[in-house]
Design a protein around this nucleic acid. Structure first.
Length: 501
RNA sequence: GGCGGCGUAGCUCAGCUGGUCAGAGCGGGGAUCUCAUAAGUCCCAGGUCGGAGGUUCGAGUCCUCCCGCCGCCA
C-alpha cells in the first residue's frame, strides 16, 4: 500500500527555525520507517511563497520579492542535508509551473461544482496570519499571534461555499475516514464544524496582493487566496494540473493508500476543514490522516525572530551534529503539549543515549568479539536464559516501534528502540563474557561465550535496523561496526564523542 | 462568553474501557562488575495522584462543585 506523507509548506519571509525542523524530522521518520518496512513511500515538502508577507519582507529589505523568496526557499530546501531529510519531492509555489497549473485546475473544478460566488465584504485581516479575525478574537485590538494591528479590508472577492460541506465533513471526521490525531485535536475540529461553517474568501484583489500570487482563472483582477493556493500543493505536486491524469497522482492520491499530512496546531483548521472541503468540492479523494504536533519553546519562551542562533536548525547541527538534534526532537518532545528546548538538554540527551547508550554498547560488544574471538562473530551452539531473553526483546522491538509510530508517538517509538540497548547491556552483565573467556584458558572453547557474543552482535544489528528511521547516520555506523569485512568485524573505536565533556 | 483538556515523586512525564495504578526517566543517595567513551548493572522515592464532596464492595481512573493552568471556538 502506498504511503504519501507531507509537511506543511512554510512561509519563506524568514529563515527556518527549530519548530519547523520538528515537523520535518517527524515526517522524515515516518517516511524512512515505511520504506524500511518495504512500503512504497513518497515524502513531500516545499515552500509557500505566494504570501503577501513575502512582499512586505522584501520591501523591508529593499530586495525583489522573487529574490527574497528564492533565497529563503533555498535555506529551507537546504535543511535536507543537516537534518538528513529524505525528501522525494520539494515543491515551490512561486516557481513550479506544475503548482500554478494545478491550482488553476483545482479552482476550475470547484467552480464547476458551483462552489464560488462573488461577495463584497469588510473584515480585519492579519497579514502575518494571512487570515481574517473577528473583533472578539483580537487582544487589545491586535492579532493574538503577531501582536500587530490587523488592517481593515473592504473589497469584493470570490467566496467558497464551505457551508455546503459541513455535514459531510462531520461524517468523515466522526467515522475516522479522515483521522485527526491526537484525539483532542479531532474534538476541536468537530467542535469547530458543529459551531457552523461559514463560507470564506478565497481571493483578494490583485492590488492588495501587490500583484504577487496566482491569478484567479478567468478573473485577472483577483489573486487566489494564499491558503487556497498553498493547500493545493499536496496534489499539484503530483501533477493535478496536467492535461491527462498523471501516474503520480493516481498512485499517491487517487488510490487506496495512505495520505498523511503533518501539521502544526496553528494550522489545523486549514488542513482538517478547509482543505478536505476543497477536495470534496473538486471531487478528489481526501487525506486519510492529519497528524497535529504542538510547538516548541526555547528556554521557556515562544520562538520568535529574536530567538537567534539557538533556534537555527542548521546552526545547531553544525554545533552538535545531525544525530544529536534529531534525537532530541524525537526522544524529548511529548506526543501532546509544547516542549521546551535547551541546548543543555540536547547535550545531556545525546551524551546519555548516543555516546553512553548506543555508542558504548556497540563499542564494548565489538571489542569483546575481537578480544575473545579475534573479530569473528561466533555461531551459537547453545542458548542461555540471558541470550534467550535478549533475543525475545529484539524480536519485540520492531512491533513496538511500529505501534508507537502508528500512534504518532515518537517518544514511545524512540523508547522502544532504547529497550534494545538496555537489554543488551543487561545481557552483558548477566553472562559476564570476561569470566567465560577466562574459563577457556584451560583449553575448552566456551559455548556460552559463543552464545553471548552472537546474541549481542545480533542485538546490535537489530539496534542498527530499528534506529535507522530515527538516526540514519548513527544507525549506519552501528550496522557497519557489526558487519564483518573478510570474516572479521572492523576494529572498534568509540562511535560518538561526548558533547558535554 | 461557550465547549475540550490539564493539574500524579525535586524536574520531565506514563497511567486504555474503575480493583498489582501508586509508576518510568532524569537529578540525588548507596552498592557492584571491568568488555566499554569513569561507560554498564543493581538497590533506594513512603508522593494524601490540585482541593472538597458524592457514586461504588472498591476511584488518579466515574459524577458535582471549587482553585490554578492551557487549548479551541465566539
Amino acid at each position: 500500500m502506498s504511503y504519501y506523507v507531507t509537511t506543511t509548506i512554510p512561509y519563506v519571509n524568514a529563515r527556518p527555525h527549530l519548530g519547523f525542523a520538528l515537523e520535518l524530522v517527524q515526517a522524515d521518520v515516518l517516511a524512512r520507517h515505511r520504506r524500511a518496512r518495504g512500503g512504497a513511500v513518497r515524502f513531500l515538502s516545499g515552500t509557500d511563497e505566494n504570501s503577501l508577507k513575502n512582499v512586505l519582507a522584501a520591501e523591508a529589505e529593499g530586495v525583489a520579492v522573487q529574490d527574497l523568496v528564492d533565497r529563503n526557499a533555498a535555506a529551507f530546501a537546504a535543511l535536507a542535508t543537516p537534518l538528513a531529510l529524505s525528501f522525494d519531492d520539494f515543491i515551490r509555489t512561486s516557481r513550479d509551473p506544475r503548482h500554478r497549473e494545478g491550482v488553476a485546475q483545482l479552482w476550475q473544478r470547484c467552480a464547476e461544482a458551483g462552489d464560488f460566488y462573488r461577495k463584497a465584504y469588510t473584515g480585519l485581516y492579519c497579514v502575518g496570519c494571512e487570515a481574517f479575525y473577528g473583533e472578539a478574537e483580537l487582544v487589545d485590538g491586535r492579532c493574538p499571534d503577531h501582536g500587530t494591528e490587523p488592517q481593515t479590508v473592504s473589497e469584493e472577492n470570490w467566496f467558497f461555499r464551505l457551508s455546503r460541506y459541513q455535514d459531510r465533513l462531520r461524517e468523515l471526521v466522526t467515522s475516522g475516514e479522515l483521522r485527526i490525531e491526537p484525539v483532542s485535536r479531532r474534538n476541536e475540529v468537530l467542535a469547530l464544524i458543529d459551531s457552523g461553517l461559514r463560507d470564506f474568501s478565497v481571493s483578494r484583489s490583485r492590488a492588495r496582493a501587490r500583484g504577487w500570487g496566482i491569478p484567479v482563472p478567468g478573473d485577472e483582477d483577483q489573486v487566489v487566496y494564499v491558503w487556497w493556493d498553498a493547500l493545493g500543493n499536496y496534489v499539484t505536486s503530483l501533477g493535478l494540473g496536467d492535461d491527462a491524469p498523471t501516474e503520480d497522482f493516481a498512485r499517491w492520491w487517487a488510490g487506496d493508500g495512505e495520505r498523511v499530512h503533518l501539521v502544526g496546531k496553528g494550522v489545523l483548521r486549514f488542513h482538517a476543514v478547509y482543505w478536505p472541503a476543497m477536495l470534496l468540492s473538486a471531487g478528489l479523494p481526501l487525506p486519510t490522516r492529519v497528524l497535529v504536533h504542538d510547538y516548541l519553546t526555547v528556554s521557556g519562551r515562544k520562538i520568535s525572530k529574536s530567538s537567534g542562533d539557538v533556534v537555527d536548525p542548521a546552526a545547531l547541527v553544525a554545533r552538535y551534529g545531525t544525530d544529536a538534534v534529531r534525537w532530541w526532537l524525537l526522544r524529548e518532545v511529548p506526543r501532546v503539549g509544547d516542549a521546551d528546548f535547551t541546548e543543555e538538554r540536547l547535550v545531556a540527551r545525546a551524551d546519555a543515549d548516543l555516546a553512553d547508550g548506543f555508542g558504548n554498547l556497540v563499542h564494548r560488544v565489538v571489542t569483546m568479539v575481537h578480544r575473545y574471538r579475534d573479530g569473528v562473530v561466533p555461531q551459537p551452539t547453545v542458548e542461555t536464559t540471558a541470550t534467550a531473553e535478549l533475543r525475545a526483546v529484539c524480536a519485540r522491538a520492531s512491533g513496538r516501534v511500529d505501534a508507537a509510530l502508528d500512534a504518532f508517538d515518537y517518544r514511545a517509538a524512540a523508547a522502544a528502540v532504547w529497550t534494545l540497548v538496555e537489554e543488551a547491556n543487561r545481557c552483558i552483565d548477566r553472562t559476564r563474557p570476561w569470566e567465560l573467556a577466562k574459563s577457556e584458558r584451560g583449553g575448552a572453547r566456551s559455548a556460552a561465550l559463543d552464545a553471548a557474543l552472537a546474541a549481542l552482535v545480533a542485538a546490535c544489528r537489530a539496534l542498527g535496523e530499528e534506529l535507522s528511521p530515527f538516526l540514519p547516520a548513527a544507525a549506519d555506523r552501528v550496522v557497519r561496526r557489526c558487519t564483518p569485512v573478510n570474516g572479521v568485524l572492523p576494529e572498534s573505536t568509540p562511535l560518538f564523542a561526548k558533547l558535554g565533556g
